[in-house]
Amino acid sequence: MTDATVVAGLGWPATGGVVAIDSATGERRSANGWPRISGTIDPTGGPSNLEREISVNAGDRPAEPAASTHGRSAADLAGFAMAGSLADMDTPIAREAAVALMAVGRRTAPMPKPDQTRIMVVANQKGGVGKTTTTVNLAAALAVSGLRVLVIDLDPQGNASTALGIDHHAEIPSIYDVMVEETPIGDVVQKVEEIEGLWCVPATIDLAGAEIELVSMVARESRMRKALDQHLQSPGVDYDYVFIDCPPSLGLLTVNALVGGDEVLIPIQCEYYALEGLSQLLKNIDMVRAHLNRDLAVSTILLTMYDGRTRLAAQVAEEVRRHFGDTVLKTAIPRSVRISEAPSYGQTVMTYDAASSGALSYLEAAREIAERGASGSTHGETIHG
């Protein structure tokens, strides 16, 4: 047996550069036990087998798509990455690089503007289904695409404010002052520094006591509507979208949001418990529509925390789509570590990792919402549980 120095060409882990060679048969096997190496680089500096193959077959391959390819889904982007020569040269890294490259182009593609401001209430009385995550990431996705977006944090926990990097300690003017003290929204709104075209009305812990204080007030259910109407009619105020992030309850704060909004967006976690209680939310929406806000309608349902490896997630998704039809967005949001990490840095996933699967999914969901708004198909019939 003799030794020869070679470099692995098919992605096997490095073996220190030494491969055992049988002088009689010429058979090569790694001294560390890795499978036989069939794609090697000549020690003299000649082209590798892969380079030769790419050189010979280049004319037969489809042209690699440009980074500015728009109007495609996240799955299409991954498919394009697979089709290019990068996918052949370096399987895992090149595919991710191609997807990231196209994500940059996709991220900067403009989205259609609605004819008038769309006020969307993100509600679900069950906690942990992704309401706040959905609110801030959809808002960020629309903003980075050139639209003007306002996020109103109506949850006393203030998680939306945290994710957008907005201070919301007790001394900060907040939505509490708007709801209880009738402070104009323009006096408490803050600009999100990380993203152009995005603003936030923060929530502080004071909001936890607002439900009790609102009980004895006149027109307690319509205070959000009054404040929003006044703000949207103010000179220089021009938003394409307003998102209201609701607390995980069906109390007065959520009722105020439903009265103040035009559309309801319901995030549904792809697990069985997420379906329980949904009928009660829909009944409450019907009651608000019948007595307080005739224009309110459930326009959007978004599947969140989708895990394609489990049969349960597929079954829940299928059941939701069967029951709610076209109200459910085609895009589902996958479970993603990047989505979970982003708030700890005071960011949305759109700025934290714009090429991640979570960012691409929220971008696609935002595009669906924007295109529905441009086509005038946002207000359907009220959904009954």
Rank of each mutant, 00 (worst) to 15 (best):
Q125F: 11
G128C: 14
V316M: 02
D88I: 06
A290Y: 09
Y241A: 04
R321N: 11
D3Y: 00
S145D: 10
M179V: 12
L292K: 11
D90E: 14
A317D: 06
G346A: 12
T91L: 15
K131N: 08
Y241I: 02
M89V: 13
V215G: 08
I152S: 12
W12I: 05
M111Y: 11
H323F: 11
A274P: 01
A227R: 07
E171P: 00
A297D: 10
I205Q: 13
G260W: 05
A20G: 12
H384Y: 15
P62K: 02
Q116T: 15
A8D: 03
V144F: 00
D307M: 10
K283G: 11
L281A: 09
G16D: 06
V255T: 10
T2P: 01
L138R: 06
L303W: 03
Q116P: 00
L282E: 01
E181M: 05
S161Q: 08
I195V: 14
R29E: 15
A67I: 10
Y176I: 03
L252M: 10
L258E: 08
V259Q: 08
A83Q: 07
R225S: 09
E271F: 08
S55Q: 06
A94T: 01
V178A: 00
E319T: 15
L147W: 03
G261A: 13
Q315F: 09
P248G: 09
E381S: 13
G130Q: 06
T204P: 13
L142P: 03
G9E: 13
R118P: 03
A219K: 12
E96M: 09
V215Y: 11
L101K: 02
I37R: 07
T134Q: 04
L265D: 00
D187P: 01
Q116E: 11
L207R: 14
D42T: 14
A290I: 05
Y176Q: 04
E64N: 10
I195S: 00
A140P: 03
A58G: 02
S249E: 06
L265I: 02
I244P: 11
G11S: 12
A257Y: 02
D167F: 11
L214A: 03
L207A: 14
F324N: 12
G105F: 04
I244Q: 07
E182H: 10
I369Q: 10
S23T: 15
A109Q: 09
L228V: 00
G46R: 09
T254L: 09
F324R: 07
M1I: 02
L292C: 06
I268E: 11
R321P: 08
G146N: 05
V264M: 01
